[in-house]
Write a protein that binds this DNA or RNA. Structure first.
Lengths: 345, 345
DNA sequence: TAAATTAGTGCAAACGCTTGCAAATTCATC
DNA sequence: GATGAATTTGCAAGCGTTTGCACTAATTTA
């Protein structure tokens, strides 16, 4: 192995020499530990900046048993979804001097376990897991060895799992109620990918709202999608072809709603005049669509923030009890919903 | 510090004991090093799986001088752009048993340097840098200490910097020529964020094509945008308000094109009948727009792949000379372009 | 003023691994 | 059946930190 050591050398020992103290003192200064005389501290600080000292994370982690790195397990990065969450995670991590190690599982999910193990083996101090495929395998192992982790937008297998989720059910309810209150009675839903709990909860909210307002649940008005734009397009075409088409559509994601818009446009159907449309997520783009999309906002960045904070607390004060969090969703009223046309109501 | 050692214990020594060999032998097995008797190897392998051994990356890196981790420096994660690139990076990294460490710089760009230093200090074996803001500062330092890195979608400060970029100029040329060949003469462009080299190159391609076909360059037809959808919307409205409006628009990004579509729709202008539109990037969404967007495909995933491969080569065979890469862009013909209306041509 | 604290510092032993070197074993070869 | 080369293994010295323990110096306290 013709590997040159890449180390650019300046270690804690060099600093110690330069400052004329022992290396343990330097370590104490670096870590803000107890008992260092102000003079000494100053001397060491001086030496550090003079030499451009930069702690070696590897060594620190090996010796100290912690790495100041958080692992993040994610399905996929090509949607804005995760990006927003990461923005929140990042914010908290930066403020706390932690680094982020990313792993996307969009390939073989069998490798998830190996990765998690590696992480838990010293590479990371804690794990943030977004929407895992089938976490049972490694979650058990993490729990056994008491390794800190928090799940995002996914419920745990075990009650003891800490999770941060959005109030999807309430969001679905709010969206549907909004349509009902506008006067709609034939309200369709295009669901998300039903493997995901979020999709199921949004549907549950829809059903609950219908029930509360004594509107009969009609299976024909439920189109099973997968959160994507194409499924919105197809779903809308399917629904609008019904003998008795809906006057409003609740799209389980903004992407779906965009597909619906395309379909409506293709058929010369005006939104919101002829058809009301409400989305879910409030991705940035929904504010610039024409018409601007009424939707349910899901606080993704806040989810990232909260999850990270919980994880850090878990790491730093293991004795304190943490609890799962469900963040409120918010109805964002814009232009895509209106009362049904009198002749259609 | 009430930190329990999170190590779940099984080290190379445990494996050695279990297998009845010395720990150095185990190390050699793990690393596929020379000179291990097949029997011994088998015994060790057995012991490893029995004990569930998992190498401790920290220790390995400390001792061996390499970490099998690649650092990735990125501006922002909330667009698909980086996601696609990461997909490619990930592919190569996984195949080569490397891990990804992510750093997004959307906050204080002053910290970029600190991060890069930390990485270069042993945390990572190499660095992939996507679209850095102002890399001069740390690039110099990296170069000095001979630390491997590759720039993506950005040109180096120094000729010796290795970069992977797309042929933006050629793409801009191809897009414009396509419109010209359809018969358009008044062709507008909405540019990207001109701080970025890619945006400037696309514009250059546009100008070059006009020049080659002896069409006069008209500043009034150049709207300076920033790659975003809103700028496309405003740009289109501005351009279409001109006394003599364009019959075709070259949008420097698909997002811009979507904004143009919105604007056109708002004005009752049909694409491509009344106005031809071509985008750039070929984000997945552009295939599902109505009309489907003609665009110039930029191979983001391939860019990630190539950059990663170069970086790995750089690390593994430092003696081999690597060269920068410019990847071809590709004109994707779909529905949003057509010859100009006879009365407008 | 002596004894007991407390603050400040240094030494050395890990942490889990890689790797150069030397010792031991094998295997041809004569 | 010995000789030398090639193969296989083990030992020990780090890699750059953190941290418990011991020690000294500065404060209190009685």
């Amino acid at each position: 192995m013709a590997r040159k050591k890449s180390s650019n050398g300046v270690t804690i020992i060099d600093v110690a020499e330069e400052a004329g103290v022992s290396y343990s003192t330097v370590s104490r200064v670096v870590n803000n530990k107890s008992y260092v005389k102000p003079d000494t501290r100053a001397k060491v600080m001086g030496a550090m900046t003079r030499l451009g000292y930069q702690a070696n994370l590897q060594a620190r982690s090996l010796a100290g048993g912690r790495s100041n790195v958080i692992g993040l397990l994610v399905v996929d990065l090509t949607t804005q979804y995760v990006g927003e969450i990461i923005r929140g995670i990042d914010e908290i991590l930066t403020a706390n001097q932690y680094e982020l190690m990313l792993y996307t599982t969009h390939r073989r999910k069998t490798k998830e376990s190996a990765y998690v193990n590696m992480m838990a083996r010293g590479l990371a101090d804690g794990l943030l897991i977004v929407l895992p495929r089938d976490p049972e395998a490694y979650l058990t192992s993490l729990r056994e060895r008491d390794f800190p982790y928090v799940l995002i937008d996914q419920f745990g297998i075990d009650d003891s799992d800490l999770t941060v989720t959005a109030a999807n059910r309430e969001g679905g309810y709010a969206a549907t109620r909004h349509l009902i209150e506008l006067g709609h009675r034939r309200i369709a839903i295009i669901t998300g990918w039903m493997d995901m709990i979020a999709a199921r909860h949004r549907l549950e909210g829809y059903r609950a709202a219908l029930a509360d307002y004594h509107i009969e649940y009609d299976e024909a008005l439920v189109y099973e999608g997968d959160f994507s734009q194409p499924c919105g397009f197809h779903g809308a075409n399917h629904l609008l072809d019904l003998a008795s088409p809906p006057t409003a559509i609740f799209a389980s994601s903004d992407l779906i709603a965009m597909g619906v818009m395309d379909a409506a446009r293709g058929r010369g159907i005006k939104i919101p005049t002829d058809l009301s449309l409400i989305g879910f997520d409030d991705i940035p783009m929904s504010a610039v669509l024409i018409p601007q999309l009424t939707t349910v906002r899901q606080p993704l960045d806040e989810m990232g923030r909260r999850a990270t904070q919980i994880l850090l607390d878990l790491i730093q004060k293991p004795e304190a009890k943490q609890t799962s969090v469900v963040l409120a969703t918010e109805l964002i009223l814009r232009e895509s919903t209106a009362p049904p046309r009198p002749d259609m109501a």
